[in-house]
Amino acid sequence: MKNRLKELRQKNNLTLKQLGEKLNMRDSTLSQYETGKRSPKLKVWEKIADYFGVSTAYLLKIGEEPNKAHLMTKAVIFIYTRSFNEPGVDSVDRYEVDDYRINGSVVETKYCGEKWIFPLTSIMGIEELNNG
């Protein structure tokens, strides 16, 4: 999952080891989060975002505003889905939505005229569509 962890860490002049000590986490784990090789549970993203004083959405590169709810119209949202019926079968589904809003740890959308809610940790990306 794309994120701003490395950017925020470097902006604050911290090494992985220093950040790991402050968050009580291993630097190797943080490195895997930075590169997207590993993605933690939402509670860990929230802990990291709180440390840097930014929103979870900003940390996860979903929103551009560090501390504000993000509102946009016409977008494509890419959702990570794990199959419970077929172990090992994962996919990324594409949804073209009429609008979306990041609200705490979830993304609220309007899809096919109905309200849908996705956890932030399932979002692989959001791409704004040209509204003109």
Rank of each mutant, 00 (worst) to 15 (best):
Q10N: 07
N13V: 11
L14R: 03
L14Y: 07
T15R: 05
T15I: 07
L16T: 04
L19K: 01
G20A: 07
G20F: 05
G20N: 00
K22G: 04
K22H: 06
M25W: 00
M25T: 00
R26D: 15
R26K: 13
S28K: 15
T29E: 08
L30V: 09
L30R: 03
L30A: 07
Q32G: 10
Y33N: 04
Y33H: 10
Y33F: 11
E34V: 02
T35W: 12
K37D: 10
K37W: 08
K37H: 14
S39Q: 01
K41E: 11
L42N: 03
K43L: 06
V44F: 02
W45H: 04
W45F: 15
E46F: 04
I48M: 06
A49G: 12
Y51C: 05
F52I: 11
F52M: 07
G53V: 14
V54F: 15
Y58V: 00
K61Q: 13
I62T: 01
I62F: 11
I62P: 00
E65Q: 10
E65S: 03
P66M: 09
P66T: 12
N67L: 15
N67I: 12
H70M: 09
H70I: 11
M72G: 00
M72W: 06
M72H: 02
T73P: 01
A75F: 05
